[in-house]
Nucleic acid binder design. Structure first.
Lengths: 113, 113
DNA sequence: AATCAGTACTATGCAATACAAAGTACTGGA
DNA sequence: TCCAGTACTTTGTATTGCATAGTACTGATT
C-alpha cells in the first residue's frame, strides 16, 4: 500500500471541492465569523481547519460571494463577520443543484455493487 | 467574479476526491477496460476523461487495489482489463462508509438553509 | 506598566488530483 | 502500404485542503 492510496488521504481528497458549498450554506443562515463556522461544521462532523478556512473565505470574498464587517468582541480581538451577497446566494443555489446531481450519480454507481 | 470562483471550476473541484470511490465501484461489479469504465460513468452523468482515468487506474494498481490482464480485441489493439483485488474490495467498503458520512454531513448543513 | 493566555486573522509551502494536450502503439480495412 | 479508429501513456497546469509559522488584539494578572 503506497502512501498515496490510504483512507485518510482519500477522505481528505473527498473534502476537496465541497467546502465552498458547505461554507456558503453555513453563511446562508446567519452571518458568522470563523470560529462560529468551524464550530458549526464540527457539529455536523465536518472538521475544517483555519489554514483552509481563512484563504477560502478570502477567495469567496474576492469573488464577490461574501462581504464582511468588523465587530468588536468582549472576549478578545475584533471579529470579522461574513455574510452572503446576492451573488453568493445565487451561486449557492447552483452549487446545491450540482451537489445533488453529483450525489445521485455517485449513489447510482455505488449502489450497483 | 474572478476566474477562480465560477460554477464550472467548482463542479470540477467537487469531482476531485470521489473518483477513486467511483472507479472502484464500477470495477466491483465487473472487470472492465477504460472505455467501458468511461461509458459506465457517462451513463450515470459522470463525465471522466482519459487524462484523469489512466493515471488514476495506474495509481490504484500500484497501490495494490487493482490488478489487470491483457485481452486481445477484434476491434482494435489489446485491452487492459482491470479487476479489484481483495484489498481493493476492503478499501471500497471503507470508502463507501466515508462517502455516506460525508453526504450526511453535507446534507445536514445544506438542508439548514 | 509589563506580561501572559486566549482569541482572531494572515500567509505560505506542500501534497494530491482532475484535466487538457501531446504522444506512442495496435489492428483491420481500404 | 497507408489510414482511421481504438487503446494506452505521459506530462504540465490549475486548484485546493492542510500544516505550519507568524502577526495582532484584548482583558486579566502580576
Amino acid at each position: 500500500m503506497s502512501t498515496q492510496v490510504n483512507l485518510e488521504n482519500t477522505q481528505q481528497q473527498m473534502r476537496k471541492g465541497i467546502l465552498e458549498f458547505v461554507i456558503l450554506s453555513v453563511l446562508a443562515r446567519n452571518d458568522a465569523y470563523t470560529s462560529d463556522i468551524i464550530a458549526e461544521l464540527k457539529k455536523a462532523q465536518l472538521i475544517v481547519v483555519e489554514g483552509t478556512l481563512y484563504p477560502l473565505l478570502t477567495r469567496l470574498k474576492n469573488g464577490g460571494l461574501l462581504t464582511y464587517r468588523w465587530e468588536e468582541s468582549t472576549q478578545g480581538p475584533p471579529r470579522k463577520y461574513y455574510a452572503l451577497t446576492e451573488e453568493g446566494r445565487n451561486f449557492l443555489v447552483a452549487l446545491k443543484s450540482t451537489w445533488e446531481e453529483l450525489t445521485i450519480a455517485v449513489d447510482h454507481i455505488s449502489k450497483n455493487n
